[in-house]
């Protein structure tokens, strides 16, 4: 018993239940999907070769990547501005802002997507109001195109972008900025050469986090894209639930998974991953 205790820490006993559950019921089938991408319908790299052969498939991947890049740029840019304002205003305003941010973070994705549906439709509130004021004669097509998908996704991703940035900005010693100004640097100089580099880890973490989350996003593109903007996640669901073809879907999932893992690895170079999530708890 003594030797057993020495070789295996008793703590592992209570780690085991969750670990076993995740390995058998989660990791197992994911490995199976990776395996399928090489074996279904026939062994080989056939599924991956389809990327080179089929224009449609390539277009879907490209649409996904493009939308993710634009979403990430906007969410992180706007998120940076929010985080900056939050760090640099008084405690009361900061608390209000944090509350609004977390409430929006917590509101169900379905509720939010539904709201955009009612706001952005041809007869939606936005078009209705613009027509009433006489700004536009014809309703603007906000939906069933990439614009709608982008609005919905950026709206969803901004809180995710803000939280890592906030953590990073809060750890900066404000006296550094004062020192830079005292030494004669202009406002923009000290921002660009001192502040921005100091927030770089947070910026990278927030960029990668938003990009990863956007890659597999399903709900908003499916609803606001209205079938016109086909992204990888929706394509996978159609393949599995309608046409029952595992091979292509597994290949796309494998690509997505490798992409995500590569980005996670990159991210871990800049930030402890748990702090990214931990930021949401306070």
């Amino acid at each position: 018993m003594q030797t057993f205790n020495r070789s295996i820490h008793p703590g592992w006993l209570i780690i085991a239940p969750l670990l076993v559950l995740v390995v058998t019921l989660y990791l197992g089938p994911i490995m199976n999907i990776l395996w399928l991408s090489f074996t279904d319908p026939e062994p080989g790299l056939g599924n991956y070769a389809k990327l080179g052969e089929s224009d449609a498939l390539l277009r879907i991947v490209w649409t996904t990547v493009r939308i993710c890049i634009v979403t990430t740029l906007f969410s992180v840019g706007l998120g940076y501005s929010i985080a900056y304002a939050m760090v640099h205003c008084d405690q009361r305003q900061k608390n209000y802002m944090l509350t609004l941010l977390l409430v929006s973070f917590w509101i169900s994705i379905l509720v939010r997507t539904f709201s955009w549906l009612m706001l952005l439709g041809r007869k939606g509130l936005v078009n209705g109001t613009l027509e009433n004021i006489g700004l536009i004669a014809e309703p603007i097509a906000f939906m069933r195109n990439e614009l709608g998908v982008l609005i919905g996704m950026i709206h969803y991703m901004i809180p995710y972008a803000v939280l890592p940035l906030l953590v990073s900005m809060q750890s900066i010693d404000t006296r550094i900025m004062d020192a830079s100004r005292n030494l004669g640097a202009s406002g923009s100089q000290s921002f660009l050469r001192i502040y921005l580099p100091l927030t770089l880890p947070g910026l990278v973490a927030s960029t990668l986090l938003v990009f990863i989350l956007s890659l597999g996003f399903y709900v908003t593109p499916a609803v606001l894209g209205g079938g016109k903007v086909l992204m990888v996640a929706e394509y996978i669901s159609v393949q599995l639930l309608v046409t029952l073809k595992w091979g292509t879907a597994a290949m796309l999932a494998a690509l997505m998974l490798f992409g995500v893992l590569a980005m996670l690895w990159l991210m871990s170079k800049f930030m402890k991953l748990s702090t990214v999530f931990g930021g949401t708890t306070r």
Binding site: Y26, P29, I30, V260
Partner: peptide, 18 residues
């Protein structure tokens, strides 16, 4: 922590599969 960050669509596939 992976189940939190792996895209939901892949988790969905995995559960569906098993």
């Amino acid at each position: 922590l992976l189940p939190l960050i792996i895209p939901q669509i892949i988790s969905a596939m995995a559960f569906y599969r098993l």
